[in-house]
Simulated assay, not measured.
Amino acid sequence: MNDKQLQQWVEEISLRSFGVPFRHQARFNGRLRTTGGRYFMKTHHIEINPAQLEAYGTDEVEKIIKHELCHYHLHLAGRGYQHRDPEFKALLKKVDGSRFCQSLPGQAKRKSLPYRYRLACSDCGMEYLRKRRVDPDRYRCGRCRGVLKLNML
Rank of each mutant, 00 (worst) to 15 (best):
D3R: 01
D3N: 12
K4H: 06
Q5K: 09
Q5A: 11
L6D: 08
Q8S: 12
Q8M: 11
I13P: 01
G19C: 05
R23Y: 07
R27W: 00
F28E: 09
G30K: 13
R31Q: 10
L32N: 01
R33M: 08
M41C: 05
I48S: 00
N49W: 04
P50C: 05
A51G: 00
L53R: 08
E54S: 06
T58M: 14
T58S: 12
E60V: 13
K66A: 05
E68R: 02
E68S: 07
E68C: 12
E68W: 11
C70W: 06
C70K: 03
H73A: 06
H73I: 09
H75C: 13
H75G: 08
L76E: 14
L76M: 14
R79T: 10
H83R: 08
E87L: 07
F88R: 01
A90E: 15
A90T: 04
K94N: 08
G97L: 04
G97D: 03
F100L: 15
F100P: 00
C101N: 15
S103V: 04
L104P: 10
L113Q: 13
P114Y: 12
Y115H: 15
L119I: 05
S122D: 14
C124R: 04
C124F: 03
E127Y: 00
Y128P: 04
R143Y: 09
C144W: 11
G146I: 04
V147T: 12
